[in-house]
Computed example of a mutant assay.
Amino acid sequence: MGSDNGTKYLDSGLPQMTEDEKKPKYTSVFTFTIIPFAIGLAIAFAIYFFGSTTVYNQRIVALTKNDLQWAFAAVVVLGRVVTFVNLYPMVHKSQIVKGSSGNLRSNPFIYKLIGKDAPVNAVVFEDEGAVGAYNRANRSLHHMIENYAVVVAGLYLASTVFPFPVFLLTCMFGIGRIMHQVGYSSGYGGHGTGFALTLVAQVTLEGLLALVFLKSQKFF
Rank of each mutant, 00 (worst) to 15 (best):
H143C: 00
G132N: 09
G132W: 08
G129F: 00
Y148I: 02
L155Q: 07
H143L: 01
G129P: 00
V161F: 02
L141M: 13
A149Y: 02
E146S: 12
T160N: 13
A153V: 01
V151Q: 09
N135G: 12
A130H: 01
V150C: 06
S159E: 13
A149M: 03
I145N: 06
A137M: 14
A153H: 04
T160Q: 13
A158S: 11
A133Q: 10
Y134M: 15
I145L: 12
A153L: 05
Y156P: 07
G154K: 11
S140M: 02
Y156Q: 09
A137K: 15
F164E: 09
N135L: 13
A158Y: 02
V150R: 02
T160A: 11
L157D: 07
N135H: 15
L157W: 06
S140K: 00
A130L: 03
S140I: 01
Y134K: 15
E146G: 08
P163A: 15
A130D: 04
V150P: 03
Y148E: 03
I145K: 06
L157K: 06
E146K: 09
A130G: 00
S140P: 00
V161Q: 04
R139C: 05
H143T: 04
A133N: 05
V131R: 10
V150L: 09
P163V: 13
A158T: 04
H142F: 07
E146M: 11
N138F: 10
P163K: 15
F164R: 10
A149E: 05
G129C: 01
L157H: 06
I145F: 11
A153T: 03
S159H: 15
A137W: 14
P163N: 15
V151Y: 07
G132P: 08
V151S: 05
I145Y: 10
H143Q: 02
Y134D: 14
Y134G: 12
V150Y: 03
A158E: 06
V152W: 10
E146Y: 07
V161S: 06
L141Q: 10
A130W: 00
V151C: 04
A133Y: 07
M144H: 01
Y156W: 15
V131T: 10
R136N: 11
P163W: 12
V151N: 07
V150I: 10
L155S: 14
N138Q: 07
R139K: 11
Y156L: 15
V150N: 04
A149G: 03
Y148C: 03
A137E: 14
A137C: 12
G154M: 11
N147W: 00
A133F: 07
V151M: 13
A158C: 05
V152R: 01
S140T: 04
V131L: 12
A149I: 02
M144Q: 03
S159Y: 14
S140A: 15
T160E: 12
Y134Q: 15
V150D: 05
M144L: 05
R139M: 10
L157E: 08
S159T: 14
A153K: 04
N138Y: 08
F164T: 14
G154W: 12
S159C: 14
V152Y: 08
Y156N: 09
V151W: 04
L141K: 12
A130R: 03
R139P: 03
E146T: 07
S159R: 14
A149N: 00
V150S: 11
A137T: 14
L157Q: 09
R139W: 10
A133D: 07
Y156K: 09
T160G: 10
